[in-house]
């Protein structure tokens, strides 16, 4: 027996290494197979539900094209499908410059985006939404290159929306010069409102608080997270480093009143 072992020591060593290598590799291969199946499933959902607007390569050049809509103030708003290949996401719970967390994408797919023609897909099976989320990630290298960021925690204070907070929020709105874009009365008609462009160099309009719901949703938490994270890819900057948490909630109180959603 010893002779056999001695004579074939190299073979035994090599085989041991191979077994070790495959032992290391095999869980990854299982994961790979699972991931490939998910991507394939996501591709199928995407082709049926998303491709018409977002295009085959996720670049927003689907057959649907640009939709033009007149705003109440007479300005024309061009709405076009999001270019997913750029890897820029407006509606995140992560700081400016970060990729969204998985739940952020699920929220957009599930809830849709009001005023943008992005419908809600709440009725789809959860597994389909997860699969299409993973498929969307294949359009941009950002998902491979960048480390994930922690989402920002949102803790709504009990006083949010009360008259004192609204009054403080009005002062902060002025001090933060929100009116330069959003207008001094929140109608989206500030002196800089016609100069704003998005990441694709296309003109965009600042939100008119008096006309409707925020695209990401108009709950106090959604308004708070919008000020905090900014809307990457648009002119809306992040106020996370410019305003403390309390002042951001006062601003929420005031802007909810502008939207006629205050208490």
């Amino acid at each position: 027996m010893k002779k056999i072992i001695k004579g074939n020591i190299f073979i035994i060593f090599a085989l041991s290494l191979m077994v070790l290598a495959f032992a290391i590799e095999s869980p990854a291969r299982d994961d790979d197979a699972e991931y490939a199946a998910m991507i394939e499933s996501g591709r199928k959902v995407y082709e049926v539900r998303c491709l018409l607007c977002h295009g085959e390569n996720g670049d927003g050049n689907g057959l649907a094209g640009i939709i033009r809509r007149a705003e109440r103030n007479g300005r024309i708003l061009e709405i076009y499908p999001r270019d997913l290949a750029m890897g820029v996401f407006r509606f995140r719970t992560t700081p400016t410059g970060c990729l969204p967390v998985d739940q952020d994408i699920i929220d957009i797919i599930s809830n849709g985006v009001p005023r943008s023609f992005m419908p809600s897909y709440k009725h789809l099976p959860r597994e389909d939404i997860k699969a299409v989320r993973e498929y969307i990630k294949t359009f941009s290298f950002r998902w491979e290159e960048e480390e994930p960021c922690e989402p920002i925690s949102v803790n709504r204070p009990v006083w949010a929306g009360n008259p004192d907070s609204v009054r403080k929020g009005r002062k902060i709105y002025k001090e933060m010069k929100c009116g330069e874009c959003h207008g001094y009365t929140g109608k989206g008609d500030g002196p800089k409102s016609n100069d704003l462009k998005d990441d694709q160099g296309k003109q965009i309009l600042p939100f008119n608080f008096t006309t409707g719901n925020l695209k990401r949703g108009s709950s106090p938490e959604n308004v708070y997270i919008t000020f905090t994270t900014g809307l990457d890819g648009t002119g809306m900057p992040s106020y996370e480093d410019s305003l403390n948490e309390e002042d951001r909630w006062h601003l929420v109180s005031y802007t909810l009143q502008l939207m006629k959603k205050g208490e």
């Binding site: 820029v88 002119g235 900057p237 992040s238």
Partner: peptide
């Protein structure tokens, strides 16, 4: 085209 890395408000 250019892709946002971050966008910060500096009001003061």
């Amino acid at each position: 085209a250019r892709r946002t890395i971050f966008n910060l408000a500096l009001p003061y």
